[in-house]
Design a protein around this nucleic acid. Sequence first.
DNA 1: GATTCACTACGTACGCTGTACGGTGTTCTC
DNA 2: GAGAACACCGTACAGCGTACGTAGTGAATC
Lengths: 252, 252
Amino acid sequence: MARSGPGPDSGARVPLSIWDLPEQGGRGPRPKHSRAAIAAAAVSLADAEGIDAVTMRRVAAALGMGTMSLYNYVPTKEHLVQLMIDEVSSEYRYPDPAPPDHRVALLDLARQGWGITQRHPWLPRIMQRPPVIGPSALRYIDYFLGLLSGSGLDAGAKMELLALVNGFAISYGGVQAALAEERARTGVSEQEQAAAQVAGLVTAAVSGRYPNLAAALAGPPPPDRDADEIFDRCVLRLIDAALSPPHGNGGP
Amino acid sequence: MARSGPGPDSGARVPLSIWDLPEQGGRGPRPKHSRAAIAAAAVSLADAEGIDAVTMRRVAAALGMGTMSLYNYVPTKEHLVQLMIDEVSSEYRYPDPAPPDHRVALLDLARQGWGITQRHPWLPRIMQRPPVIGPSALRYIDYFLGLLSGSGLDAGAKMELLALVNGFAISYGGVQAALAEERARTGVSEQEQAAAQVAGLVTAAVSGRYPNLAAALAGPPPPDRDADEIFDRCVLRLIDAALSPPHGNGGP
DNA sequence: GATTCACTACGTACGCTGTACGGTGTTCTC
DNA sequence: GAGAACACCGTACAGCGTACGTAGTGAATC
């Protein structure tokens, strides 16, 4: 039997992307809320109490609506997550005109990405799913491609670099976020945490089963580097590697 | 009041890492199962039915035990996940002696990592959490460091390269896995999926709001590349960038 | 050998989740 | 005005992680 109720699925296919769904149809009462408002509410809830606090009930309550009313705006929670990702993606700022130096401009973009993951530590955890590209992500892609317009790279190579830089920023941000979360939960300081990590490696090394690890720990301690330094250096390496011709020929 | 029951937490702190917990204490009946068996059961369940099928109830049932008995082996589900990660990490093979060429050896390792994410597509989703290093991960780190022993890099730089290569392999594998999952769910072919992605970009491009995207799509189509090719090239770039001296000096 | 008690095993129950369903009231198009 | 489309939402359900309590087992201690 055909249904007509408000349920999310109604027997019909629910589109993969939230942006394949019109924000409002013509008929019926005007919705009281906008997608933007819903996304903002979910994001600030995640910022304040962590991603696990983002439940349909809590988001609906934050917006002053009943739980099931949220399903009028979003067919499943997955689509709400898409809105959240695009919401924080809108935080990128695109200087116009762009800095003349490719490397500087790209590094700035990567740093912004890392900044976003620091403001929204739950983001990396959320990003590991089918990539649905929203308007803000498109804006980002467009700007990124623009920065590389004079580089001589073909479109595929540009997209590769984008994936490379983003993949690194996400994964780097994810580790940092996880460490910060652990710090917040357990109350240990950053130094104590680092010491504990090293101590763990050391106990492993003294077992004798990991000779190379032991050798690395026995060698001269590398100069102190902070997270920003490491981040910048890695990203610049990625950029330089993409912009310069390959070294030798490929693998075997 | 002090408890003595079997509950997971007993009011006492539960250690962050499962390997900080002895596998079995001296007293009482011998446990019927091993951590390895539990990890294997959870992994094959995830392989067969996806990560969402890995619930305490299902894993316990697969092992022929009551749900709560699982908590004798693992204080929380989080610790079960740690076991799963280390279980699949044990799939790495470390040729002895290692190939003489750094680049080849490192590329092989990265390819193995990607292979693992293809056999266990749920892995990338799981990895985004506080990094808890198990014995198999230690083995991997040790081997990786060994490959770089003659490189002249200091310990910190070696770890950076490890993070860079792993971060890329995970993030690349994650995207591929998500796409494959979507394919399995919706039944579309790989070509259709790619076409749909491009079509989405094209509709965005014709809106006029994304000029650089339009330009990239209008340009000559890049030569077809398959996923392996892209993967190898990206990883080699990472390796070469790390092994060669930096290009210019850093950012601003 | 008897006692102790750490340990495994597990049934029951609680609070929470995402969301299916059906009903009611509002506002649009005809 | 009629009827359809839509917003709103209370109730309900299956499934989740896991707290708690109890029963039984067997190595360590006496």
